[in-house]
Design a protein around this nucleic acid. Structure first.
Lengths: 319, 319
DNA sequence: TCAAAAGTGTTATCCTTACACCCATGT
DNA sequence: ACATGGGTGTAAGGATAACACTTTTGA
């Protein structure tokens, strides 16, 4: 359109302070303790650790690590970027860019003095825990309210679209539950103004549904992190970031189940783990549970080097 | 550590202009024409479309769309976020945050007047095209130079680490080539100062290797986009964003091969596509190639709604 | 004593991989 | 005629899902 745009304009306009933005770093830090997935929070457990990206930070990652450590006393191990989004600042004349990260650790003797706490993530998403069967809130509260919301649309197309999305994201009948759709479910609930965040500041709306809210859009970010983690454990050995150095296969299974929010088949799970050579025996056995002593295993660090690998899904031809 | 950090500090410090940043939006826009994957470039084909995120932009996505359209006259369809990174500005007292996106379109009658061009992505990464067998540059130039670089390290551990990473990322023997490791390969070449971008500004270094450079870190971003696309085509039906409304199975196959940089098995590919119900016949046939007329297919839009689905890899137990 | 947990097998089924082959058509 | 491409068939192998069952031990 304009011929002055032959060179990328970023350089040219950088000195123009008219587009001032500030960047926030936000961390979703997860640990699994006693078979419960927990998230690291600050304040009244309504906020994720976060802080502005500063000039002193060497990189986004190190800035994030600094903030988490400062606010919670907890050093981070594995982290990966989640998503970046932008909202208009409350003042309106500035933009806030939020860069979110997912971190995995073990909930250990961190600095007690720091004001932080670990909260079970199902406090925020009670409908996501299907380990003890389909949660009653789902059947009794969420689905009826979502159906009502779908039907209240005037336009036929909208109605159909809503029904379809609700069915897809919340479809139960046990086997069809897709645990990865954490974010889609939260966003549907938000759209239907069934979560507190959606009605905040605005008037009325439906009374919100069980599940603890968070400040700003932190709960949405947490949902993003959970969704990412639930998909990732299926194709990358990230669970081990959450495990102690040595563990039994049952402990490993319980951790996976805690994350996925559903139970897995014991024998097949064990076969899966062993056949992929993900673990090796330490030689010790422990009998912390009742039942016979269990062998302890450790993660084979070498697989990180060997098989950062990905799976093929293309039927390659031999050259 | 500090007790004043009970609340997230982002709010508190937002008005402090000491951490001024500017945010750039960068687009990797891909199309496949005549069996060649192309990337949308501006300037002397050394830059990706980009521009600062401005107050007028409703969202990151719409800001990106605006910039690409302004600079190239090309409207965007499918886009997804790639990655966000930060570099110190050349002035040193400000930060630049780059938010990159991947876009997929068809290279069509866009505005001719706009100063843009489509470049084959293998111009930038000649070592990534294995459709006609292992590229000779790989055997003759890249691998020898990388080996030399690995061996020139003084520390034994570093030497071993480098060799391992080179072997993993570049290992040939045909079948073991992993087309998804585009970024890892580029970064190794960068680390070994074998690409022009690595020696730019600095003195000497090894003479660079075949492959067209780009400004700043645009080539790294392109590598990120290619890698993402190569992995994504395996589990989401995104190829169809690159196809015309109707196409033959061979055209579809050629597109996938262009992206993956390797040949796929014809019969098995067709089975894969058909059994997943991704396409349906239009009823027409065309004989543009020699050989018998081919049926034309169209993408079944419904699958987007039905199966945004993901695959299980956990051995779930029946409740 | 009994229930929870550690283990070991075994089978059917599906998907992937790899072959081999025939037919139609344009050069 | 022949090479290129369209289309069909099928057999072997491995991974997954779904069974059933024994043994050990703490509560």
């Amino acid at each position: 359109m304009q011929d002055k745009t032959i060179q990328p304009t970023s350089q040219a306009q950088r000195n123009n302070q008219s587009h001032a933005v500030s960047a926030d770093l936000i961390a979703v830090v997860i640990a699994v303790t006693d078979g419960e997935p927990r998230v690291l929070t600050i304040g009244e457990a309504q906020a994720l650790p976060s802080g502005p990206f500063e000039l002193g930070h060497r990189s986004l990652q190190s800035g994030l690590r600094a903030w988490v450590e400062r606010q919670t006393g907890h050093p981070l191990g594995y982290i990966e970027q989640l998503y970046t989004f932008a909202d208009r600042d409350r003042t309106g004349d500035e933009r806030v860019i939020s860069i979110s990260y997912l971190g995995l650790t073990r909930e250990e003797q961190a600095d007690r003095s720091a004001a932080h706490s670990w909260r079970g993530w199902y406090d925020y998403f009670p409908w996501e825990d299907h380990r003890a069967g389909v949660p009653s809130i789902l059947r009794d509260i969420l689905v009826p309210r979502l159906s009502a919301w779908a039907d209240e649309a005037e336009d036929l197309g909208v109605r159909r679209d809503r029904r379809q999305r609700v069915a897809y994201a919340f479809d139960l009948d046990d086997r069809d539950w897709n645990e990865e759709l954490v974010l889609q479910r939260y966003e549907l609930l938000y759209e239907a103004t069934l979560v507190a965040e959606a009605t905040r500041g605005r008037d009325g709306g439906s009374p919100s549904v069980p599940g603890r809210p968070m400040i700003a859009d932190h709960r949405r970010i947490l949902a993003t992190g959970i969704a990412r983690l639930r998909t990732k454990i299926k194709y990358r050995p990230v669970v081990f970031e959450l495990m102690p150095p040595a563990f039994t296969l049952l402990q490993l299974q319980r951790t996976v189940e805690a994350l996925a929010g559903r139970l897995v088949h014991k024998q097949n799970f064990r076969r899966l783990i062993e056949q992929q050579d993900l673990v090796e025996e330490t030689g010790e056995t422990v009998s912390e549970t009742r039942g016979p002593p269990a062998k302890r295993f450790r993660f084979r660090q070498t697989v990180l080097a060997e098989r950062t690998v990905a799976g093929t899904k293309l039927p390659l031809s031999r050259a």
